[in-house]
Each structure stands twice: as structure tokens, then as C-alpha cells.
Design a protein around this nucleic acid. Structure first.
Length: 579
RNA sequence: GCAUCGAUGGUCUAGUGGUAUGACUUAGGCCUUCCAAGCCUAUAGCCCGGGUUCAAUUCCCGGUCGAUGCACCA
């Protein structure tokens, strides 16, 4: 036996590597920190997790998925604040070679406003400051920007700057106008995206927890700012209870309190129904992929921890036996920050026209110039007069206006004054955005770590991945007890029949049956079918449950349907044993 | 990025200034009527670059990757 380490992380990663879940990328060239490959089983498991996510957000919520490029032009990230805010001003201590945040150094030296100073100014200002590491006086240093975004140029010989997106969210924001049309100009609506994002982390660590290229699943839900407490399906999760760790509790060092979503909103613990709804949905989703509820909590961001745009933010944290509580999902109320920013940067409005129930009537006085006379009389000034008259306050004698410093009197005969009742049918509003953002890779790690188990079976250590059947890459294994007397061909036929119903079944006839069971246990295959000599007599097979190692006999014709039901969680193995 | 430690078949490891130990795995065969049994055979390894040396997997320097601490994680 391979001696098992007492470090879960090492055991999980060793198994993941050996069995084809997770590999270091381009290993033959020595790998690169912060990048990983999903091997055959890992890619399958990840896909199943993503499909469960789609089931929740696309099918159940009705938020369609879009797919945007991973590279976008600079304007997008100027608007989002990433060009400016995603970079740190750094300098290197000439004595100890430590890299330091220049603004932290300035703060230590009581220099204010470092964040708005130019790099040269900061460099000059911090000359006499002490290094935060070795405490020597810095002297001459160069201050430079380190941006966490990967940059590139677009096109040959082009100076046009592009960035690899640091989050998928911006794609949904910049497509806002198209999305609004797609959803026929009505709020609320949502768009989601599952895709790669990139952050050039200074020091990626902890395997799959902090990557430079990672998969995000993000939903951007656009909602009327006054409707945030009226989620149309709130009732689904109103009574959903879970432990919440509020920022108040954190400051008092108290533990989380279990509470229903309805109560959380009523007591103002969660900002609004929308945030509460997705907090609950996230809990539901994470439990579905196999996260144990007792290893799951929702932590509210502290006020100073929140991103500049968010009014409320909750992190779903999953407990890792190695890393402690790991932020896995963030649910934020981003308000109208992003849409406003893109509207300003791009010059395209990002608003929704909301019709009033009844049009609002307002009386107003309108001046209608008689242009056929005005034009002839004032010639080149006519257009300016036309514009000025609109806002003028006319008397019975006429109107006095000013064009480029020249006072002009327009007699009343040259325009008509109409008092009108104008109907205003609605208004343009900028929607608010509720954003649940999932780190798929962290979810994959959490699922693997939680599933990893070693138990003792017949005096031997059995390594078993107790994956939920819903995310297990291989769904059922099919074995002939012996490779002879036609058992193998029967097993092979069953395998193919399962394939036809969309079940990923793996046929294996090598070595002793026990070895084959263990092999499947290790990759988390939840069920195994064995064809034995009774099969030839009565057309039944043995169905084995991975977790209990118990077996039941079922008829071959029913097996695809039974396996399907077991994998989808529609029937339990225990219920089969009872019949 | 700095500091400390580490890197030997797919995995876990022994060891060495003269190309490497053992186990498990995997593949083929024999055997075997439900949980890693046994037997035979086979495949497969010293992270990369430079230096010292007749000779480097081993010693030295640099790099890469990994672990840990610091910093970083809008």
C-alpha cells in the first residue's frame, strides 16, 4: 500500500493527479504556477458541476447563457475600474529586495493622498520612509504599476491595448442594450456566463484555490432599483434556513446564526430579497453538488471589505480541512455602478424605459418660432435664436434673448406661445445588478476534498471518493465476474445499452473483481454492475453501491432506467434493497 | 517577489562522484464463481541550464515547480 499522508490536500491532489482529475499544466516543460489542466475525469466532473449550475440558473431561473471573448479592449476595463483600481503601485526596497506596496510605505510615513499621486511624486515622497520589511531608509526607488490584468495588443503591429478579462461580468454589462432588447425591454432579466477569467496573481499558491486562469460562473441579474425587495420567486426560498455570519457578528467574534431568508430580509440582515434569494439558491446548489451543509456558511463582507460598488456582499465559504473557510461564491448587489460606468465611457445609454401605470400629465408652455420669417430676417443667427427661444420666457411684447453676448428682442409676432398638457408615459432608469459569482475551480476542489475518504474494508485501507452520483465522472462500471463462458460479452452488451441511454458506463474485465471495485471506488464511480453465472440463468445482474458496498440483484432490462434514477437522485439504493 | 526547505519510474520511496533500491500501479499470460489474493513476464525514473571533475542524479551556482512564513489576493 502507498502510505497515506495525514495531509488531506496532499492525498487529494496525489489521487487527482494519478487518476486523471487534475494535472500540472505543460508538465514536460516544468509547469507554470497558477495554471492547471483538468484531466479526463476532472474535465468530466467539472462539466457535470457546470451543468448543474446551468440547471439552476438557465433552466430554472430562465437566465440565458451568453459567451463573450476572453480578451476585451482597454475601454471596457477603464470603465469597469480595472485599469486603475486593479493595479497596485509597487516599489522594491534596494536593501532587502522586498517588493512593497508604495501606498503602504507612504501610509507608514504619514504621507497622505498617496493613492492619487503620480508614481514619480510617490517615489519622491517616500524617499525618507522606512522599508516595511527591513526597516532601512528606502532612498531612491522606482515606483511602478503592477496590474493584475494580463495585457496584450490586438492586431499585427497594433498599439491597440487589450486585456484578458479578470471577470466574465463585464461581458454581460457591455451587452446590456442587446440583452434588454432580447428580453423585450422588461425588467427583471438576467444573463449568465461560464468561462475563463485571468488574473496575474503575484504569488499563486494552494493548488486549485488561487489560479491565474480560472473558470467563473457568473449571473448578472438586472432589476429595477425599487423592486429589489420583490423577487418574483422569493417564496421558493422564503423559509429556507441556513447559518449566516453577519458583519456585526464578526466584529463581536460571535458565531453564525441559523435563520430563514424571510426573517433575514425582514430584520435587515440581508439587504434585499434579491440578494437573499441568491444566497439561498447558492446554498441549495452547493449542497446539490455534494458540499456538506455543516461545511458551508455565508459570511457578509465587512463594510471596509466591500468593493467600491457593492452595497451588500455575501460570500459562500466552504470549509476545507486544509485551508479553513474558503471563499467560493460571492453574491453582491453591484447597484447601478457598472452600467453607469459603461454609459459614461461608451456614450451609449444603458437605461430601461419604464412605463408608468398612468401617464403623468404636466402643463407646460411651449414657444413655437415662426421660422419662415425668422430665417429670412436673422439668417446665420436663426438657428441660435431657434434654440434660445425654447427656454426663453416670453412676455406679450415678445422675448428677450442673448446670442453670443448680443441682446436681441424678438417681437411676439414671430412666434406662437402654446400652453399644452404633456403626457409623460414613463422614465428611463438605470437598473441595479445583483451578481452571484461562482469560482468553479474552487467548487471542484471542495467537492474532491469533501469526497475523499479512507475506510477499512476487510482489513485493508480502501480509498474512496464519495462523490455525489450527480457529479461523478463515471456513472456506473460494468464487470464480468470471469472473462469466459460468455460473461464478458453479456457485460459488454449491457455497457453499450447504458451508453445508448446517455449513461457514462465503463467496462472493465482486467484482474480480480475486488481490484476492479477498488479502482472505481477511487475515482468515485457510485455504482457497479457485475455479470455472473446467475445472469445466464435468470437475466439479472448484481448492482453494487459504492458507499455501503452492499449489493442487490436487478433484471437486465430495468438496469438502464434504474441507473438513470440512481444517478439523478430520483431513487435511492436503499429503496432497491428493500424491494 | 523575498526567505527557508524540498524535487529519484504513473505513485510512494532507498541510495550513490562511476546511470539506481524496493513496494504499489499499469500491460500480457496462468489461476480465480463478488471486494486491492497468488505465480510468471514486461513497460517505466534521477526537474531544467551552467560550473567543478576523467566522470555529476549526487558537489557548487542559477532557473522551474511544490510546501511553509512574509508580502499580495481590487
Amino acid at each position: 500500500m502507498i502510505p497515506a499522508s495525514n495531509d488531506v490536500f496532499e492525498n487529494v491532489m496525489e489521487l487527482a493527479k494519478r487518476r486523471g482529475f487534475i494535472w500540472p499544466t505543460s508538465e514536460c516543460y516544468g509547469g507554470v504556477a497558477g495554471f492547471i489542466d483538468y484531466g479526463p475525469l476532472g474535465a468530466m466532473m467539472k462539466r457535470r458541476i457546470e451543468d448543474i449550475w446551468r440547471d439552476f440558473y438557465v433552466i430554472r431561473e430562465g437566465y440565458y447563457e451568453i459567451e463573450c471573448p476572453t480578451i476585451a479592449q482597454e475601454d471596457v476595463f477603464i470603465a469597469s475600474g480595472h485599469v486603475k483600481g486593479f493595479s497596485d503601485k509597487m516599489c522594491q526596497c534596494p536593501h532587502c529586495k522586498e517588493y512593497l506596496r508604495a501606498d503602504h510605505v507612504a501610509e507608514g510615513g504619514n504621507i497622505r493622498n498617496a493613492s492619487v499621486m503620480t508614481n514619480e511624486d510617490i517615489a519622491a515622497a517616500i524617499k525618507s520612509c522606512k522599508c516595511l520589511s527591513c526597516e532601512a531608509e528606502l532612498g531612491d526607488v522606482e515606483v511602478f504599476n503592477f496590474n493584475l490584468m494580463f495585457s496584450t495588443t490586438i492586431g499585427p503591429g497594433s498599439q491597440r491595448v487589450g486585456y484578458l478579462r479578470p471577470e466574465t461580468a463585464q461581458g454581460m454589462f457591455v451587452d446590456f442594450a442587446r440583452l434588454l432588447r432580447f428580453y423585450r425591454d422588461k425588467l427583471p432579466f438576467g444573463a449568465v456566463q461560464i468561462g475563463k477569467s485571468y488574473r496575474n496573481e503575484i504569488s499563486p499558491r494552494q493548488g486549485m484555490i488561487r489560479l491565474r486562469e480560472f473558470t467563473q460562473a457568473e449571473a448578472e441579474i438586472f432589476v429595477h432599483p425599487d423592486e429589489k425587495n420583490r423577487h418574483p420567486s422569493f417564496r421558493r426560498y422564503a423559509d429556507y434556513r441556513m447559518p449566516l455570519l453577519t458583519h456585526v457578528q464578526q466584529q463581536k467574534c460571535e458565531g453564525p446564526v441559523e435563520i430563514s431568508m424571510q426573517e433575514a430580509v425582514a430584520r435587515g440582515i440581508i439587504a434585499n430579497e434579491y440578494v437573499a434569494y441568491y444566497v439561498a439558491l447558492t446554498h441549495d446548489l452547493l449542497v446539490t453538488i455534494g458540499i456538506k451543509p455543516e461545511r458551508l456558511r455565508f459570511r457578509q463582507h465587512l463594510v471596509d471589505e466591500r468593493a467600491h460598488y457593492a452595497t451588500d456582499c455575501w460570500d459562500a465559504e466552504v470549509f476545507s480541512r486544509r485551508f479553513g473557510w474558503v471563499e467560493t461564491v460571492g453574491i453582491a448587489d453591484r447597484t447601478d455602478y457598472d452600467l453607469n460606468a459603461h454609459a459614461t465611457q461608451s456614450g451609449s445609454p444603458m437605461t430601461v424605459f419604464i412605463q408608468y401605470d398612468k401617464p403623468k400629465k404636466t402643463e407646460c408652455r411651449r414657444i413655437i418660432p415662426n421660422m419662415s420669417v425668422l430665417g429670412k430676417q436673422y439668417r446665420a443667427k436663426a438657428n441660435a435664436i431657434f434654440a434660445a427661444l425654447k427656454t426663453a420666457t416670453p412676455t406679450q411684447k415678445g422675448a428677450d434673448i442673448e446670442i453670443e453676448g448680443e441682446k436681441i428682442h424678438i417681437p411676439a409676432s414671430l412666434f406662437e406661445v402654446r400652453d399644452e398638457v404633456i403626457e409623460i408615459r414613463g422614465e428611463d432608469i438605470v437598473p441595479h445588478v445583483i451578481e452571484p459569482s461562482y469560482g468553479i475551480d474552487r467548487m471542484c476542489y471542495a467537492v474532491l476534498e469533501q469526497a475523499y475518504d479512507e475506510d477499512i474494508a476487510d482489513g485493508e485501507t480502501r480509498t474512496v471518493l464519495r462523490l455525489s452520483p450527480k457529479v461523478a465522472p463515471v456513472q456506473v462500471a460494468v464487470f464480468p465476474l470471469m472473462i469466459r463462458d460468455g460473461l464478458d460479452s453479456i457485460a459488454y452488451e449491457i455497457t453499450q445499452k447504458l451508453h445508448k441511454t446517455g449513461i457514462l458506463a465503463e467496462y472493465d474485465d482486467s484482474g480480480a473483481i475486488g481490484r476492479r471495485y477498488r479502482r472505481q471506488d477511487e475515482i468515485g464511480t457510485p455504482f457497479a454492475i457485475t455479470v455472473d453465472y446467475d445472469t445466464k440463468e435468470d437475466n439479472t445482474i448484481t448492482l453494487r453501491d459504492r458507499d455501503t458496498m452492499k449489493q442487490v440483484r436487478i433484471a437486465i432490462p430495468e438496469s438502464p432506467e434504474t441507473i438513470r434514477g440512481l444517478v439523478d437522485g430520483k431513487i435511492s439504493f436503499a429503496s432497491l434493497a428493500n424491494t
